[in-house]
Nucleic acid binder design. Structure first.
Lengths: 111, 111
DNA sequence: CTTGAACCTGACATTGGTGTCAACTTTTAC
DNA sequence: GTAAAAGTTGACACCAATGTCAGGTTCAAG
């Protein structure tokens, strides 16, 4: 989370002596950040994107610029490809698992 | 691909003088390897998994051991979580994009 | 007050697949 | 035959988020 802070992803309150104070909102925010990292976005894009996201209760605090929109559209397309590839890989795993499982209990299907 | 070779993912023929000879099958295999990497598997699991996969035309050359099956099932579950998270992130991106796009051409929806 | 726990900063290691470079050998084209 | 192109090996750098450690400050309980 210190790292997130340096990247401008998390603005954290400080107690007068310098200790960080995390509000409840920080939890959701960290979860969102990690999801975006997992989706392949880098710190910079996330930093630009976060303020444009709708918060739990409110409207976004910023509107994405046209430049950012095209970048995000590119990311979205990449994520879509990622999803279809993952589904394919998952299905391959399922097939391997099923094939092996069939061999493990052949009695169940014998006449 | 040299790296894949060292990890036991690609067995490559050699010409007498040592040059690598890649058959057509290598293309599909590399694509599959990269898909599995993208799905978060590491070299070792992929090396165990590959021989259990059905090839383009033939049956798998090996059947996964029970140990491997449980590992693969864990990976599959992780991939499933990955997919749902990615879908969520993609939808978030879509929302940000749509919101910005609505702002860019408001005339189209004005009365 | 004192002591232990928790926090701060800054520097550094880790990860694992990928990219790059040098020095050398083999192939290919003319 | 010769030169350019492309292959080989091995060593090393890179990325970027995360983890860890040391030395010093602050907080909280007794």
């Amino acid at each position: 989370m210190r790292y997130y802070e340096t990247q401008g992803l998390l603005r954290v309150e400080r107690t007068p002596s310098g200790h960080r104070v995390y509000g409840d909102w920080a939890v959701d925010r960290v979860i969102r950040i990690q999801a975006l990292y997992a989706a392949g976005l880098n710190s910079k894009k996330i930093a630009l994107l976060l303020p444009c996201m709708r918060d739990t209760d409110g409207a976004p605090s910023e509107i994405a610029t046209p430049q950012l929109v095209t970048e995000l559209a590119t990311e979205r397309d990449r994520i879509n490809r990622m999803i279809t590839d993952l589904i394919r890989s998952r299905d391959v795993l399922d097939e391997v698992i099923d094939t092996a499982s069939d061999r493990l209990r052949p009695a169940l299907v014998e006449p």
